[in-house]
């Protein structure tokens, strides 16, 4: 085996970029799930974000406007899910699946007229001195702004959940909505905000694909990234930093298998690409020895009946 063609530094730098869409969508879904809402509509929200961001960036000429619009679009779509599950007490699994169906349709409708257009370029943040450092410079300091934003978001969510009162309330709602309600917290309002945050993050993840990774608009371009994000949250056992780890693992397996192929090493590609899912199942099994990790109210319908 000749592995000399593979440059580990570049490989790591690549996987960091490849992981961003999953990371953004997953960290948002994590917050929603922490509040007890299992939203399977991530794919629908991502693709809606992708087109909202793309359209806004093309119209305004500014990628920043694009990302803001993507977050708004994803959040707006998630409100549909919130209405169904919180106001009309519909089943979360079915509502999420319906949301994905609707989002895919909506996005291709919005996307008419945007096929074959190139969006405005996003600046890479080449931090002067740091990016010239050997190894670390290439891996850590020569990416686009959204990469750093996604890291910051993970840190912020972690700090929010762990150290703030609001984060504590959110977790309480997810663990036992009846008790939280009895304590006087507005369960539905908190969940509504968590869902909207999840939608906004999914929208950003989608826009990262349409504005930076690809960058172009084509129908169905997220190609299942939303489902991977869902897997990631579970893999991470609802812990923000592990989401980052998981995103690198999922992104890394793809990048690694492509690298091995390019280096001419015969590998069974299909079986390697199954591995992240198998690892996730393994993590689930290991985790289930300790029952307390998944939010206890996840997926359950809440109705305040005094």
């Amino acid at each position: 085996m000749d592995l000399s063609a593979i440059n580990p530094v570049l490989l790591v730098a690549s996987l960091i970029v490849a992981a961003v869409p999953f990371l953004l969508a997953a960290i948002g879904e994590l917050v929603a799930e922490k509040s007890g809402m299992l939203n399977l509509g991530v794919e629908g929200m991502m693709i809606t974000g992708a087109i909202c961001g793309f359209a806004a960036a093309v119209q305004s000429g500014s990628p920043l406007t694009g990302f803001l619009a993507a977050a708004a679009g994803g959040a707006a779509l998630s409100l549909l899910y919130a209405f169904l599950t919180l106001a009309t007490l519909a089943n979360q699994v079915a509502s999420g699946l319906a949301l994905t169906l609707f989002g895919l349709g909506l996005s291709s409708k919005l996307g008419r007229g945007y096929v074959g257009i190139k969006p405005p370029a996003s600046a890479t943040l080449d931090i002067p001195v740091l990016s010239d450092l050997p190894v670390v410079g290439r891996i850590l300091f020569s990416h686009d702004v959204m990469v750093y934003f996604s890291f910051a978001l993970v840190a912020a969510v972690w700090a929010f959940l762990k150290y703030t009162r609001a984060g504590l309330i959110l977790r309480a709602v997810g663990e036992n909505h009846d008790a939280a309600h009895a304590l006087g917290y507005k369960v539905k309002l908190i969940r509504l905000m968590a869902i909207a945050f999840g939608g906004a993050c999914a929208g950003l993840g989608g826009a990262y694909i349409s504005l930076i990774r690809v960058p172009q608009w084509t129908e169905g371009m997220t190609a299942g990234a939303g489902w991977i994000a869902l897997a990631l949250v579970v893999f991470a056992s609802w812990k923000p930093w592990r989401v980052l780890l998981g995103a690198w693992l999922f992104g890394g397996v793809t990048v690694l298998q492509l690298n091995l192929q390019a280096a001419g090493i015969a590998i069974p590609v299909e079986y390697l690409s199954i591995s992240p899912y198998l690892i996730t199942i393994l993590v689930l099994v290991v985790m289930s020895a300790d029952r307390s990790r998944a939010p206890a109210s996840l997926g359950r319908i809440f109705h305040a009946s005094q």
Binding site: S14, A18, I209, G220, M221, T222, A223, G224, V255, L258
Partner: peptide, 12 residues
């Protein structure tokens, strides 16, 4: 069809 994966392949 998976644009993100194609990007990864090209970068690799």
């Amino acid at each position: 069809f998976d644009p993100a994966k194609e990007a990864d392949a090209a970068r690799t």
